[in-house]
């Protein structure tokens, strides 16, 4: 017996997810143009695995397939994971990533809206912890690679493994990776920066993709799908911490600009940290959540063992979200200000 209201607004969850995926398109196209067609293969594979796993789990839980598959949430998770993984990795890497993301991180918690961790980042973290070698073979920018791949070659590499072309023909270390290894060896920052893979801000080619994600993010903001709190706080937290470290020891720590435009910073700030299900939900909570995530990203990048800290930073802050939400409840209308409206059980 469903009562009032009898009229509904126009937006719907599947529309929201679709719009977020559209906002990803500029980044994907730039990635494909700059790093070769590998991205299409990983996107296709991840999406396929996502749909298969989601359908499998929904059947096992006895829920109708149509409403859940059509809400595009599995597809969005697949795209986010595909964009944070190296493109020409073997196919089983994508399968395992999606298995963790869809099955463990989402469906086991009850499906859309009830998971505590960001599914894409769980997939990424599981992969980087268990397959560090494959996870560091990133595609080189098309200009630098000594062998430009066509789409067919990409499929061949992904499915047939090493196949005809050797791995180092098309891969190169990422910007963050080279900076960390060189800096720890003590080479002066000028010579590191002069290496070909470094562009004007981030990695050569990477900064264009990051700019595209930034554009997509601003589109999301204008469509009011996300609020400004999370991206701004994340980027500010990252830049501030990197800046402070850079001031302390410029030879050891890269400049904040490089941090912002390399690795998963832009993608993380606008698309991954803003996942409404696992992010903090109150305005103040969002600022704390994203600010700390930015800070942790910088710390992990500077001192940690892994090249890019975005995934772990977001996961660590997902752990704190229920706690943050409980104690950052905004003031309710009619409750005189200053009175802390914490949760009363």
């Amino acid at each position: 017996m469903i009562g009032s209201p009898y009229i509904l607004g126009r937006n719907s969850t599947s529309a929201i997810m679709l719009k977020v995926m559209l906002a990803l398109i500029p980044g994907i196209v730039a990635h494909a143009w700059l790093f070769g067609p590998g991205i299409w293969v990983s996107l296709f594979l991840c999406s396929a695995f996502a749909i298969v796993f989601e359908a499998l789990l929904l059947l096992m839980r006895g829920l109708p397939l149509k409403p859940f598959l059509s809400d595009n949430s599995a597809l969005l998770t697949a795209w986010l994971l595909a964009l944070s993984l190296p493109t020409l990795a073997p196919w089983w890497l994508y399968a395992i990533g999606m298995l963790f993301a869809i099955v463990v991180a989402k469906q086991l918690y009850g499906g859309l809206g009830q998971n505590l961790f960001n599914p894409a980042m769980i997939g990424y973290a599981a992969l980087i912890v268990s397959f560090p070698v494959n996870m560091t073979q990133w595609a080189a920018p098309v200009g630098l690679a000594d062998h430009a791949l066509t789409l067919l070659d990409a499929f061949d590499v992904v499915f047939a493994g090493q196949g005809s072309i050797s791995a180092d023909a098309y891969t190169s270390a990422t910007v963050l990776d080279t900076w960390k290894t060189q800096a720890r060896l003590g080479t002066p920052s000028e010579s590191i920066l002069s290496q070909p893979i470094f562009g004007w801000a981030g990695g050569q080619g990477h900064e264009i993709v990051a700019l595209m994600y930034l554009a997509g993010g601003l589109l999301l903001l204008s469509l009011k799908l996300i609020t400004w709190h999370i991206p701004l706080a994340f980027l500010a937290g990252l830049a501030a911490t990197a800046g402070v470290l850079h001031l302390i020891d410029p030879t050891q720590h890269a400049s904040p600009l490089l941090h912002l435009f390399s690795g998963g910073a832009m993608l993380g700030a606008f698309f991954i940290a803003t996942d409404p299900v696992t992010a903090a939900s109150t305005p103040r909570g969002k600022l704390i959540y994203a600010g700390m995530a930015g800070l942790l990203t910088a710390i992990i990048r500077a001192f940690g063992g892994y090249p890019d800290g975005v995934a772990f930073a977001v996961l660590l802050m997902n752990v704190c979200v229920p706690f943050i939400d409980t104690y950052t409840q905004p003031r309710v209308f009619g409750h005189h200000p200053g009175h802390s409206k914490g949760r009363k059980s």
Binding site: G304, G305, F312
Partner: peptide
């Protein structure tokens, strides 16, 4: 959360603890 029946209670708590330690691995080598 309407966790699937077999995973209700402590088992989903165990999984969550596992994913938490996965997150804490980020600090490895710090």
């Amino acid at each position: 959360a309407d966790v699937p029946k077999p995973f209700r209670g402590v088992s989903i708590a165990m999984i969550t603890a596992g994913l938490m330690s996965l997150a804490f691995m980020g600090f490895a080598g710090l």
